[in-house]
Design a protein around this nucleic acid. Structure first.
Length: 220
DNA sequence: GTCCGGATATTCT
DNA sequence: GAATATCCGGACC
């Protein structure tokens, strides 16, 4: 699980191209990660782990260390799937916003009740893969839910924008996606503006820095 | 294609 | 009481 023990922005970018696999209900469905968003800890006002909140029953999985599934319920009817990032005790997570369907398309269509837009949104992909609150806190090391690394996409195909559906810190450059992919979520993403980042977070946008920065627990 | 309102639970003010 | 890390269907262009 070492690969998840990096800051959320690093992991969010690195997860593009990885494969999310579900065997929920005994049937296999999977998809290639094509769109992610990073949520930080106390320093990120948009995060469920923002300072004023701290650790609660709802966001506890964000504190459990990289590779823990964090699923939360929102708008009274939708589940969203995140992967906790970083070291235990240091909250952070990557929201998976869209997948390219790979396996189990017919199962996804049955779960979604339609044949289009199967995994092009954070709540849609949860429905397609059968994910809900029962998977919150699951370590992503094996069934019923895990992640396999894939080939890193061409850096030139990776887009960066502000995050979708939030007001606070909306122009922070924390949404990552494969440019032009047909299965991206339809959400309206604001352009990113790195100047809105507090000084201590400027490392996020320096080219290359977000995929090189290590956490305090990474000795090498 | 875009825009708007409704559904509905939990958290926060 | 308001906001929310959303989606869907219907109105309209």
């Amino acid at each position: 699980m070492e690969r998840f023990a990096v800051p959320a922005p690093t992991l969010a970018r690195r997860m593009l191209g990885w494969r999310l696999v579900s065997e929920v209900g005994g049937v296999r469905t999977s998809g290639r990660v094509i769109e992610t968003e990073a949520y930080l800890g106390p320093e990120d006002p948009a995060s469920h782990a923002a300072t004023r909140k701290g650790r609660t029953d709802r966001n506890a999985s964000m504190f459990e260390g990289g590779g823990t599934a964090y699923l939360y319920f929102t708008y009274g009817m939708h589940w969203c799937f995140n992967v906790a990032a970083g070291a235990p005790g240091e909250p952070g997570a990557v929201l998976v916003r869209a997948l390219e369907p790979l396996e189990g398309r017919e199962v996804m269509e049955a779960r979604r009740g339609r044949s289009r837009d199967l995994t092009s949104g954070p709540a849609r992909l949860c429905q397609a893969l059968g994910l809900d609150g029962t998977h919150d806190g699951h370590r992503l090391e094996g069934p019923p839910l895990w992640i396999e690394e894939g080939d890193a996409p061409d850096e030139r195909r990776i887009g960066v924008s502000g995050r979708v559906g939030i007001r606070k810190a909306r122009r922070w450059p924390l949404r990552f996606f494969l440019e032009g992919h047909p299965d991206l979520s339809g959400g309206k993403a604001p352009p990113s503006d790195p100047r809105t980042l507090p000084a201590e977070l400027h490392w996020i946008h320096r080219p290359g820095s977000s995929i090189r920065r290590s956490t305090s627990t990474e000795s090498a």
